[in-house]
Amino acid sequence: MEINQLQDICNQVRRDIVRMVHGVQSGHPGGSLGCTEFLVSLYFNRLRHRAPIFSMDGLGEDLFFLSNGHISPVFYSVLARSGYFEEAELASFRKINSRLQGHPTTAEHLPGVRIASGSLGQGLSVGIGAALAKKQNGDPYLVYTLHGDGELQEGQIWEAVMYAAANQVDNLIATVDWNGQQIDGSTKEVCDLGNLPAKFQAFGWEVVHVEQGNSVEAILNGLEDCVSKTGQGKPVVLLLNTIMGHGVDFMMGSHAWHGIAPNDEQLASALAQNPETLEDY
């Protein structure tokens, strides 16, 4: 898919995100907007998947696991826009009897979701397990995971980072949404992550660093670089510098919009900045 087509999808996904969060006055718009370009690039250009067909085992296709489950709005929008379920269902986000739970779950059998996430730090281990199963099954496809940068403060992440390198889990591409923000403030203030590229390198990972993490073109190049590094005995991490709230000017770069919803006026402003490209749900 061409870059301008992907950018059009990004605009629509951003509209979906702010409308979903506004519709229920609840949810996490900041990180969702910041990861829009990444997830659109992944799902519409890089991931070899069989949407709209969904099978839990995912044999013979690439798999994606969202470890930072709170950015469910962008995940749901991208899954719907990929064809896993009807866009109209996005309106049920976080409401009673919905398959679109606050945090993603398999319990409601929403196509495209293979693990529950929300309690942070667990998705890398799950991704490693799925990658090992692919090796066990002789399945040459890849496993992708996405993590928040604040999530790296969880100890389980580093258990998994150590294991994946020690055991040559080289069919795995983990992406870190490195926006420098978490709920209580900047990651620097809360618990400084330090030199992330050096840390992953020291653990034995291949590191790809994309500084323009909201540029579709830069993301595609970074993903291509990551894929070229798979199969060579090392796990691969994509460190993606993104801007929290990207695409909505008053949300950009602040942790304040981590987990609050826009009011009517703010919604109108956000939508005006992101013209409808596909049809609104």
């Binding site: 995912g58 798999l63 667990q122 799950v126 199963a133 389980q156 998994a160 294991y163």
Partner: peptide, 20 residues
């Protein structure tokens, strides 16, 4: 897995996704 039980549980969960 090494002395990393949390990682072990997550890996086990992920393995089931491939039918193991």
């Amino acid at each position: 897995i090494g002395i990393a039980e949390a990682n072990m549980m997550g890996i086990a969960a992920g393995m089931t996704i491939g039918g193991l």
